[in-house]
Write a protein that binds this DNA or RNA. Structure first.
Lengths: 185, 185
DNA sequence: GTCTATATGTTGATAGAC
DNA sequence: GTCTATCAACATATAGAC
């Protein structure tokens, strides 16, 4: 017996994928309906507006990010956590080079809109910056704020440049450099 | 006596401004017509399609970038050029925090499209990476490639994060750090 | 060259049968 | 809850008068 309805879940998953790969504005609700296998007219039963859909996608991203950090926090040493975070990112290098950072590119796009969801997207970067900074703080670094900012900007910049060059080796190169920098701290 | 027509120029200027502030997809041709004072139907006399307009904007950006680099090259020392480049960027911190990087954010948005102009946008970042790397090379650095990549990604990452946080002080902080890093090299 | 009026297509969203 | 049919708004692009 199937669950009462997994359509909502499927819609969020398809929307998240397409918003990342094609962009928010370039993805129509019809595209999401087709990708998820949910009939077009039925989408509005689950999400009244397109803004509700992107909001659900951002909620899901926030949960994913939270789970990831909880996983990393199982490592006792903050330095090891940061290195593992970078290793995990490196594993996604091909997708990152092809479509850009799923968080950063969406933030840039939504920040241009006049919609409230933009702040929700920005919150993901704030969360990332906070977690990274917390790791440096836990390491006893007096300049944890600056180090956190430095690592966070390096990560997002790598996403932008690698995506523009369509070259995953850029991610490889930068991530390796950042890992060795963190280890030496 | 006015020039034969400065409308084309006005259109490119308005389009460039709006594509940066509002985004490419969110800016309609009607918006550009209104901002530039050119009647809607007349836009298509100068630019057959919206793609032609963004292409002209990107051409203009390329020329601006070129002029900027030529200006910087008047400084004899590559190190001084890089520091001046960063100083010039810092002067735009408020606009950068509010709207994001005019090159980077456009690249990210256009990379999601299936249009040929995306490569033209990416070319701007390639040009930037090349010029910065050339400065390190001229400084005699063996690892100029890595240093160039490092500075370029740091700049673009700062744009993304500062825009997400809507905080110009992030740009100030990062740019100062980068300037002192370049000086010490 | 300039501009009004409009064709054409797409989108987000809704109404209402089942 | 599900889905078809469709509305209303908007966007790009064009036709053709001036």
């Amino acid at each position: 017996m199937p669950r009462v309805s997994d359509k909502r879940e499927k819609l969020v998953q398809s929307a998240g994928k397409l918003f990342h790969q094609v962009g928010f504005n370039q993805t129509s609700i019809a595209d999401i309906a087709e990708d998820s296998g949910v009939p077009l007219g039925n989408v509005h039963y689950y999400f009244k507006t397109k803004a509700d859909l992107i909001s659900a996608v951002l909620d899901h991203r926030r949960e994913s990010l939270k789970s990831w950090y909880e996983e990393l926090e199982k490592l006792p040493n903050p330095k090891a956590r940061l290195v593992q975070m970078l290793t995990d990112m490196e594993a996604m290098k091909h997708k990152l080079a092809k479509y850009g950072c799923p968080v950063g590119s969406l933030c840039q796009e939504l920040d241009k809109e006049r919609m409230p969801v933009a702040k929700q997207a920005d919150g993901l970067i704030k969360m990332q910056l906070k977690w990274i900074t917390d790791q440096f703080r836990e390491l006893g670094k007096k300049d944890a704020e600056e180090l956190g900012l430095r690592l966070t900007t390096a990560i997002h910049g790598t996403g932008v440049v690698a995506n523009a060059m369509k070259d995953a080796r850029i991610i490889e190169c930068e991530i390796e450099r950042l890992k060795s920098w963190v280890r030496k701290l």
